[in-house]
């Protein structure tokens, strides 16, 4: 059965009138209990993410990212291995100073650590939003054992509706990058006896590095 036949069957099943306009222009706002703004959003984002087993690290400036990564990886029990890193958008992040060897591009099957750039955080559920691009390959979030997302603190939104508004403001109307990933904790499964085990197919651990302000940004008076 062809496209036309299916569409005709739908039309016949629905009958007339052919169009039922929406009774409202836009989706109503998120439930009040899930909303937050400003500093409360950052606090909620951190609390909700930590409740999902995510490690939250806060740094003041981009140049502090390598140190935070090195300390985090050392805390996991080993010296920092080579990390596969997205284009974070800041020049001169001193990886070598922290003793970290970096590689770019898509993740390789034997990569241990992948670092992605987050477009937004969502306080409602402690979720990070990633979009694919040449500089931010999707595989960084799924192939390595440890996934780290770097996110500007100012990019933490309150709700999913605010996150979709960010997507609409960032990309042409009605378009999205190939992959938009909403990530809420590390890979997990409950399929064996109902017990939660992490690292099912994707990363065993997820960390989020919140960057308080951009290098060179002017602080508000």
């Amino acid at each position: 059965m062809s496209r036309e036949a299916i569409l005709r069957r739908i039309r016949n099943a629905l009958g007339e009138p052919p169009r039922n306009p929406r009774s409202r222009e836009t989706t109503p706002p998120a439930p009040a209990s899930l909303m937050s703004t400003g500093a409360a959003s950052v606090a909620r984002f951190i609390a909700e993410a930590e409740a999902k087993g995510v490690t939250l690290l806060t740094v003041r400036e981009p140049r502090h990212i390598p140190g935070a990564v090195a300390r985090y990886l050392t805390g996991l029990g080993g010296p920092a291995p080579r990390v596969r890193i997205a284009d974070l958008g800041w020049p001169d992040v001193p990886w070598a100073d922290a003793g970290i060897e970096i590689a770019t591009g898509a993740a390789a099957p034997d990569d241990i650590v992948g670092i992605s750039r987050g477009l937004a955080g969502i306080a409602e559920t402690g979720t990070v939003l990633l979009v694919s691009s040449p500089g931010n390959p999707t595989t960084l979030a799924f192939l390595p054992e440890v996934h780290i997302v770097v996110l500007e603190q100012a990019a933490v939104a309150g709700t999913f509706e605010e996150a979709t508004a960010i997507l609409r403001a960032t990309f042409s109307p009605g378009t999205l990058p190939r992959s938009v990933n909403l990530i809420s904790g590390a890979s997990r499964t409950g399929d064996i006896g109902g017990r939660i085990v992490h690292g099912a197919h994707g990363p065993r651990r997820l960390a989020v590095i919140l960057v308080e302000n951009k290098q060179g940004a002017v602080e508000a008076p």
Binding site: S132, S184, G202
Partner: peptide, 21 residues
């Protein structure tokens, strides 16, 4: 859960310059 660990919107094949997909 309030969100599953991975919620993904996939839109078409890899774009120009993409390294995976």
């Amino acid at each position: 859960q309030d969100m599953t660990a991975y919620t993904t919107l996939a839109t078409g094949p890899r774009r120009e310059g993409d390294r995976d997909g």
